[in-house]
């Protein structure tokens, strides 16, 4: 599976990464080079192997429904790039 520049731009947007037009050729070539390594997966006969998402066969542990967290909002907001009136601020989002 080979990517073209348009697809690379689409993926970059999905990942919210910017690729300058001047860099797109190189980025596409590099990704295709890497993907050629991954495409070897297609040649492997995996038979009826179960997809393995976790290295250990464990099940999810459940937490008791208890409030354990204190309000640390001031500490958290002290390291935020932009805050106001107790909120995190971003450029206006147009709905």
């Amino acid at each position: 599976m080979s990517l073209d520049n348009k697809k690379v731009k689409e993926i970059a947007h999905l990942a919210r990464l910017n690729i300058e037009d001047s860099d797109i050729e190189q980025a596409t070539a590099e990704l295709n080079n890497i993907l050629s390594l991954m495409d070897k997966l297609g040649e492997i006969d995996t038979g009826d192997a179960e997809p393995m998402a976790h290295p250990l066969k464990m099940s999810q542990r459940l937490r008791e429904d208890k409030v354990l967290e204190d309000d640390l909002s001031e500490e958290f907001q002290a390291i935020a790039p932009k805050t106001g009136k107790g909120h995190f601020l971003v450029p206006t989002v147009i709905e």
């Binding site: 106001g84 107790g86 995190f88 971003v90 206006t92 989002v93």
Partner: peptide, 15 residues
């Protein structure tokens, strides 16, 4: 929640 009417130039985020 995104709050759009708190600031003119910003959207305020309450998590």
């Amino acid at each position: 929640k995104s709050i759009h009417d708190l600031y003119d130039d910003y959207t305020a985020i309450d998590l």
